[in-house]
Amino acid sequence: MNNRHTLRIFDEDLNTLRQEIVALSNHVSEQLHRAMTALVENDATLAEQVIADDRMADTLQEKIHTHTTRTLARQQAMADDLRAILAASRIAIHLERIGDYAKNTAKRSRHLSQHNIAELIEQFQWMGTRIQSMLSQVTESYIHQNAPLANVAWADDAELDVVYANLFQHLLSAMNQESRNIEDGIQLLFIAKGLERAGDHVTDIAEEIYLMVTGLPLQGPRPKISELL
């Protein structure tokens, strides 16, 4: 298979898009990592930095949007090229949303007055690490056009849903038992839900990559939460 276009500028456009997607993914992954650190270590300064850095994710996403529009306008993209351009546009939107959830985590971490439900923090950490791992997988699959790897990340989201369901129950119980847990509990519930949604966005990215590489929608059985509990 010939991977170079006769028109070199088309290769340059596609390479630029690829590099921008990888840059945005790396930025968002780092943003999430630091948001989780701010949460676990109750580090308000770091949280402020994460919030401020979200502007960079927005800027990168807008840049990708501009480049996809420009590439579509000036190249007569077909087949896998067309899918790659459309996928870049959609993946950027999902990545930017994951960045928003990282920012939201950082924001809410500033309002946690106490960590008397510290035993749950490990589960939050696990969720953060899992999302980063899934992000890393989809980024690798994007770079190397590896559809099976995208499939792995897609399937990994199921465990994230299980941990979220457990967290939800624990937080509910903690709030029921002690009314002084309610304020933190609500903040943590929103954080947990945000992380669960971030996982959903990674699975959406995996689906985009699978479609981009194979031309086929990613289908098939993914473990249901009820089967895993």
Partner: peptide, 16 residues
């Protein structure tokens, strides 16, 4: 034009 099955077709329609 979106999912060609043959490499030759894909290379032609994508300008390769």
């Amino acid at each position: 034009f979106t999912t060609p099955q043959e490499t030759l077709t894909r290379d032609y329609i994508t300008g390769r």
